[in-house]
Nucleic acid binder design. Structure first.
Length: 363
DNA sequence: AATACGTGGAT
DNA sequence: TATCCAAGTAT
């Protein structure tokens, strides 16, 4: 890489890349203005998430929380609901906390220094570079998976991009080649190129605006890069869940712990169970944890829910609550209407859907 | 450094 | 069907 960087035509590369971006960039909703708040929200939504998935969420979020101030003063329940289904929910809890911090400490203006902006919750090296370059035009590297793939090919970098520290190698490369005239377009163009042309698997090198600058293409090795080790198989967990109703027709729901998996989202009461006596274990759990005395019927559904790092095998029971339950902040009896107002993870939306279907069929 | 943290689309 | 993955961050 070292000898190659010396003969690398930096200015020609910048020109070829940025001119291509000016021609070919997609019309995306967060590219309509450079409000740092909007750029920030889009970057958080886009973390580990596809553009096509983000677009409708971004529109809805901006309608509901059009300004940093409006998000800062919103109830967390509403904020989580706006994120429902997007995944990695700590992103939005961190964003909410960070926006409050900006309102309090910086008078509502998103900091324009890496030093200050990167201290905010949920703001890491990528988001720092993305917001500072795109919203403020500062020459900071914004290295995501696209950029690592593109640059690993252009400079024939064979470091394992699955390792977190490898990102620094690419940040250093970007610092050497970034356009100081237009850091925003430079960074976005690198990512756009990774998304449209320099894709995983079989890149469209014949359409690539920087083909002439690419060392991997010159050596016919573009499909060998980037190097990325794969992760081990995920763990499977057996879960028993309960959709139980009191005599007034209200459903029992529970708010999950404030940290960890699906933090602060609502769920139907459930616990991890063994293969032997899941129904018995669930009944005992409901009594012990929630003081709920319930009679469960036979399970009406079984579903598999796959996360990035584990699999839930869920068996779902319905049943009746006998006697009274003491409601708390995290334990509620709600109508079917109220369920629609609260944020549930997709796994529990599926449980609810199965339940409705079961009832419809006369269960 | 390695792992936790979601979801749905692509191949 | 299986695997990979998509604009990462926190711990």
């Amino acid at each position: 890489m070292q000898p190659f960087i010396e003969e690398f035509q930096i200015e020609a590369f910048q020109r070829d890349l940025i001119q291509w971006f000016e021609r070919e960039q997609r019309d995306l909703p967060w590219r309509k203005d450079s409000d740092p708040y909007k750029i920030w929200v889009s970057e958080v939504m886009l973390q580990q998430t596809r553009v096509d998935t983000v677009i409708p969420y971004f529109h809805q979020f901006m309608e509901q929380f059009p300004t940093l101030e409006s998000l800062a003063t919103a109830d967390e329940e509403k904020v989580l609901k706006a994120w429902e289904g997007l995944g990695y929910y700590s992103r939005v809890r961190n964003l909410h906390a960070a926006v409050k911090e900006v309102k309090e400490r910086y008078g509502g203006k998103v900091p324009d220094s890496a030093e200050e902006f990167s201290k905010l919750k949920g703001v890491g090296p990528y988001t720092t570079g993305a917001v500072l370059s795109i919203a403020y035009g500062l020459p900071e590297p914004a290295v995501d998976g696209n950029v690592m793939r593109v640059l690993s090919r252009i400079f024939l970098v064979e470091e394992d991009i699955a390792k977190v520290k490898t990102r620094k190698i690419f940040e250093n490369i970007v610092r050497m080649i970034i356009s100081h005239e237009n850091p925003s377009y430079f960074n976005q163009a690198l990512m756009e190129l990774g998304a449209l042309i320099c894709v995983p698997g079989k890149p469209a090198c014949l359409l690539c605006p920087v083909q002439a600058h690419c060392r991997a293409f010159a050596e016919g090795r573009q499909e060998e890069l980037p190097v990325k080790t794969k992760k081990a198989k995920v763990k499977e967990v057996s879960i028993a869940a309960a959709v139980v109703m009191d005599k007034r027709g209200r459903i029992l729901i529970h708010k999950r712990d404030q940290e960890g998996l699906l933090a602060n989202l609502w769920e139907f009461p459930n616990c991890e169970v063994g293969k032997e006596q899941p129904q018995k274990e669930l009944t005992a759990f409901l009594k012990k944890e929630y003081g709920a005395c319930v009679e469960l019927n036979s399970p009406f559904a079984a579903l598999e829910h796959v996360f990035s790092h584990l699999v839930w095998n869920i068996v779902v029971y319905c049943g009746t609550i006998m006697g009274d339950i003491a409601e708390t902040d995290r334990l509620k009896l709600v109508s079917e209407q109220e369920i629609q107002q609260l944020a549930f993870p997709v796994s529990h939306q599926r449980i609810w859907k199965e339940y409705k279907q079961f009832k419809q069929e006369g269960g």
